[in-house]
Amino acid sequence: MHPDRFRQLCLDVLPQAPDITTAEPWADDDAPPCGIVITTTSGSRLWVTITSVLAPGARIDDADVPVPGEPLTAVPVPALYEDGKITPRAAEAYLAATLTNSAHPEIQRAYGYTDDAPTRHPGVGIEFHSGAKVYLPFAHTARAGQNRGRERYRLQNDF
C-alpha cells in the first residue's frame, strides 16, 4: 500500500476511535511528503510521518494494487489516557489497536514499535498481506493549547 492511500485509510479510520476527534493531513511549511496530525478528545495532538517499504519485487512506479487477506481479529483497545495525559507508549498501543480493529483486508499486522523492541523513537508499524510495510514514526506532540515543538522526534514524556 502506497503512503498516500494509507494516509487516506488513517483519515477515515482514526476519527472513529472513541478518544480521537480528528485526523487530518499534515500540511504546513515543515510537513513531510506524507503525514497526519491526530487530535484527541483532550485537545492533545500528535504529528505522525508516514513512510513505506514496497512489497518484495515491487517498484515505485507499479500500480498500487490491493492484496486482501484475512482481516485481523478485533483486540481490546487500551486506555489512551493515564491521569488525563497521553504517553507515546500509550499512543502506540491505542493506534495499533485502532488500526487492527479497522478489519481492513490488506492489513496483516499492526504493532507499536516498543512492542517489538525498546526504541527511542515511538511509532506504529503496519505489515500488509502484499509484503509491503508502512511506518508511522511520531514526529511531534503537543498538549492542548500548545504548538508543536520545532525539533522532530523530540517528544514530550506525556502530552
Rank of each mutant, 00 (worst) to 15 (best):
G131P: 03
N147I: 08
A142W: 08
A27K: 00
G131T: 01
G112C: 08
F128M: 10
R7H: 01
T39P: 02
D116R: 12
V48F: 04
L95W: 06
T87K: 01
R7K: 00
E106G: 00
G43A: 02
T100W: 02
F138D: 15
I20W: 08
H2C: 04
A97F: 08
E127R: 13
T119E: 09
R120N: 07
T114Y: 09
T98A: 13
P88K: 01
W47Y: 07
L95G: 09
P71G: 00
Y111P: 01
K133A: 03
A144N: 13
D115T: 14
T21H: 07
Y94W: 04
D62C: 12
D158R: 12
K133W: 02
Y111T: 09
W47E: 13
A55R: 11
I60C: 07
R45G: 06
R143F: 05
L72E: 11
Y153C: 09
E24A: 15
Y81R: 11
D4S: 13
V67N: 02
L14M: 05
H129D: 00
P56Q: 08
A132F: 04
F138W: 02
G145T: 14
R89Y: 06
R59C: 01
A58M: 04
D30W: 05
F128T: 06
G131E: 05
P68N: 08
E82G: 12
H140S: 10
G112E: 10
N157M: 13
R154S: 07
I20F: 08
D64G: 10
E92P: 03
Q108S: 05
E151P: 10
T40V: 11
T51Q: 10
L80G: 13
A27L: 09
L99H: 06
V65T: 14
D30S: 11
R45W: 02
P33M: 01
R45F: 03
P118D: 14
L72Q: 14
A91C: 06
E127K: 14
P3K: 14
Q156C: 12
I36E: 15
P3I: 13
